[in-house]
């Protein structure tokens, strides 16, 4: 059981007083939904010399996926230093000694909102422009040279290792037979492509709903970096293009706009220009199937947490219901397509 409001205020005040070397008071502590996997709180920290609106992300008792706050903090720091629109990370507590569970503080991003799953046309007349900005941003991330620190702190997963990562999640969390996920895994293992290029910093959950935008179509911030790793950037493109995140537009036939933003070819062109990399068209079907398999593994993990009564967040129950059945259907249809 994690601490209540007063306990969190006390932890934050102690942490920031030490960091700022003055007495810091916490006010307007407010939990908001910053993704299903983590507790996210915003608050104002007030000292005699400065006052700032900040956000704390920390591990809950149970979560959608087990990830490291150190990884998320590092990926955010890399993206921030590269000038990408992300919340600026400030203080890491990797062991949870100060925050109660592992977590970190970052600067609050002002303005903007995230699209919700069932919203139609969330980006309106600005969709195309916003889409170009978004795929330019992810291309710039993929263009960053991999550093020694990246290699030390981030999981290193080429396509096969990434597939086996999700296969382990499936094994660990499938409470019932999963004949579609198992069939997809067999196909994916048998047809695994070579990496599309050198390892890159991959966001890992790049999709509509994981970035903030303004009503005027400005990209405010890329969010939810907890699944960042060193891997193949094709993964980010396939996950973004997955029909689940298309707001009802993109069908199983790979047509329709990516994330209700812009056509795949236009998204790829923006990404290629910014990343300096080439889209691996030959491996695209594999990556589409991989995206659905990854989705299933995540939703099964979510269902496991709910069924074992380790989680109370309704988003976890929802994930095990609608997205699970969506991806089960999508994978079955894709398996038929590749076996025809």
């Amino acid at each position: 059981m994690l601490d209540g409001l007063e306990g969190i205020e006390g932890r934050l005040a102690a942490l920031l007083s030490a960091a700022w070397d003055e007495d810091v008071r916490i006010r307007n502590l407010f939990r908001f939904h910053g993704g299903a996997a983590r507790e996210t709180w915003r608050f104002c920290a007030e000292g005699a010399r400065r006052s700032e609106w900040l956000v704390m992300r920390r591990d809950p008792v149970a979560s959608l996926i087990r990830t490291s706050r150190e990884v998320e903090f590092h990926a955010l720091a890399r993206a921030s230093a590269a000038g990408l629109p992300v919340p600026e990370p400030l203080l890491l507590d990797a062991e949870g000694e100060r925050l109660g569970t592992p977590g970190f503080l970052m600067r609050l991003v002002e303005g903007g909102r995230a699209a919700s799953l069932f919203e139609t046309e969330p980006y309106g007349a600005h969709a195309e422009r916003l889409g170009h900005t978004l795929f330019d941003a992810i291309g710039r991330l993929h263009a960053l040279p991999v550093s020694r620190e990246d290699e030390a702190l981030l999981p290193v997963q080429d396509p096969r290792a990434r597939l086996e990562h999700w296969a382990r999640e499936l094994d660990a969390h499938a409470l019932r037979p999963q004949p579609i996920a198992r069939a997809a895994l067999r196909w994916l293992r048998a047809h695994c492509p070579e990496p599309s290029g050198p390892l890159a910093l991959v966001h890992g959950d790049f999709r509509s709903g994981n970035f903030l935008f303004t009503d005027g179509g400005r990209l405010v911030a890329l969010l939810d970096w907890e699944m960042a790793h060193l891997g193949d950037p094709m993964e980010d493109l396939a996950w973004a293009a997955d029909p689940l995140w298309s707001h009802g537009e993109r069908g199983l036939a790979d047509r329709g706009r990516v994330g209700a933003l812009l056509p795949l070819d236009a998204a790829v062109a923006a990404w290629e220009e910014a990343s300096g990399r080439r889209f691996d068209r030959a491996a695209w079907t594999w990556w589409r199937l991989f995206a659905g398999f990854q989705g299933l593994a995540i939703w099964l993990t979510s269902g496991f947490e709910v069924a074992s009564l380790r989680a109370v967040d309704p988003v976890l129950a929802f994930s095990a219901y609608y997205p699970y059945r969506f991806h089960n259907h999508q994978l079955a249809a894709l398996l038929r397509e590749v076996s025809a």
Partner: peptide, 29 residues
Amino acid sequence: LHAWADANDPELARRCLDFLVDFATAERL
């Protein structure tokens, strides 16, 4: 059965997959 059929019996594998496609289509929300 599907795992075995995928490796040994394409016609049976097709029947297994047909069932799964129909099932998942009907289950979609």
